[in-house]
Design a protein around this nucleic acid. Structure first.
Length: 109
DNA sequence: AGCGTGACGACCG
DNA sequence: CCGGTCGCCACGC
């Protein structure tokens, strides 16, 4: 596929935009959906570029469900509050309960 | 044009 | 179980 890399950011954003309300997904799953499962870091880069946009980047967490990107929001707790506001539950480790809220790109589409 | 870095993840020793 | 390394892609210096 020709523009797999050129549109990488765009593809990431497109996936993020599809994350259902009250659900989350991981960098790894997004990367895998895009065909480069090892490019999870690049997904993180795309989120960095997406910071401050309309994209629900707070619904993207690392593979443990930890809010590794919370510090890139307006405040360290903003991401958490947004998620809780969507009915997402957290574990004692301050991780999203993926067993309840994990959404996998293309899994329902 | 080369090197380092980053909201990650899998593998190896 | 834990630390180091590599792979992936884009960006800054």
């Amino acid at each position: 596929m020709p523009q797999q890399r050129q549109d990488f950011f765009e593809r990431v954003w497109d996936v993020v935009a599809q994350i259902p309300h009250g659900k989350v997904t991981t960098y790894g799953h997004i990367a895998e959906f895009l065909g480069t499962k090892s490019a999870a870091r690049t997904v993180g880069w795309a989120m960095n570029a997406a910071a401050g946009t309309d994209l629900p980047c707070h619904r993207v967490v690392n593979r443990f469900g930890a809010l590794s990107g919370s510090r890139h929001f307006e405040g360290p707790f903003v991401m958490r509050e947004r998620l809780e506001n969507e009915g997402i539950e957290f574990t004692d480790d301050d991780c999203v309960d993926l067993s309840l809220h994990l959404w996998i790109p293309g899994h329902d589409a």
